[in-house]
């Protein structure tokens, strides 16, 4: 009986660790319902998706201070918020990095950056790094567009903002905007997932 108990315990531990190892890599797929969170904003107030009663959805952007790709997209993220917030899709920016591993991404420096760039949207710290693995974000910047429905915030688009990180003027495909425009017209998003080079999330 003791041996059986031990075996069962080993299996339980094994099963749990196997699952926890898989989960962060998996994350949300298009069509999944994204869970809400409560994270600290640069103004020290907690922010949840549920706070935005009038929103039709969200542009959740995992981004940070230090990453050159994230920096290259800062102005375009601000432009997205300015254009789509009034249409019901505000930007919610989340820094997924562990500040202990990446000093430039500390909460204090997030506050500095948000002020310098006049961020028009919440810039939240994923304290304890619990939120980004649920989404399945692997890098910065990494965009998730959610649409508010009766069943919750449904993931409609995952990926890049557009097809040219290095030169905003040379962009041909505005992936995020195309997805948002489709959602606003109650149409199916044509390109649901894209890939981009980015900085790996620091854990």
């Amino acid at each position: 009986m003791k041996a059986i108990k031990f075996l069962a315990l080993t299996l339980v531990v094994g099963a749990i660790s196997a699952f926890t190892m898989i989960k962060p890599a998996a994350g949300y797929k298009v069509g999944d319902v994204a869970t809400d969170f409560s994270l600290k904003n640069v103004d020290n107030k907690k922010v949840s998706l549920a706070d935005f009663k009038a929103a039709k959805g969200f542009i959740v952007v995992f981004t940070c201070n230090h990453c050159p790709y994230a920096q290259a997209y800062e102005d375009r993220i601000i432009a997205l918020d300015k254009k789509y917030k009034k249409l019901g899709y505000p930007v919610i920016a989340i820094n997924p990095n562990n500040p202990a591993k990446q000093k430039d991404d500390s909460f204090e420096l997030m506050q500095v950056r948000a002020k310098e760039k006049n961020f028009t949207f919440p810039y939240l710290l994923d304290e304890g790094q619990k939120v980004y693995p649920q989404y399945g974000a692997t890098k910065t910047p990494h965009v998730y567009i959610l649409q508010k429905t009766k069943v919750g915030n449904v993931v409609k688009y995952i990926g890049a903002i557009d097809d040219n990180y290095s030169d905003a003027a040379a962009v041909k495909e505005k992936y995020a905007e195309n997805a948002l425009d489709a959602l606003l017209k109650n149409k199916e998003v044509a390109v649901k997932e894209t890939k981009a080079i980015g900085c790996s999330i620091k854990t």
């Binding site: 990926g159 890049a160 097809d163 040219n164 990180y165 290095s166 030169d167 040379a170 041909k172 992936y175 894209t194 890939k195 981009a196 080079i197």
Partner: peptide, 14 residues
């Protein structure tokens, strides 16, 4: 710069 066009050609898991 059009990384979406080529990342998966390096590997679909990337």
């Amino acid at each position: 710069p059009d990384a979406n066009a080529w990342i998966s050609k390096v590997d679909t898991a990337w």
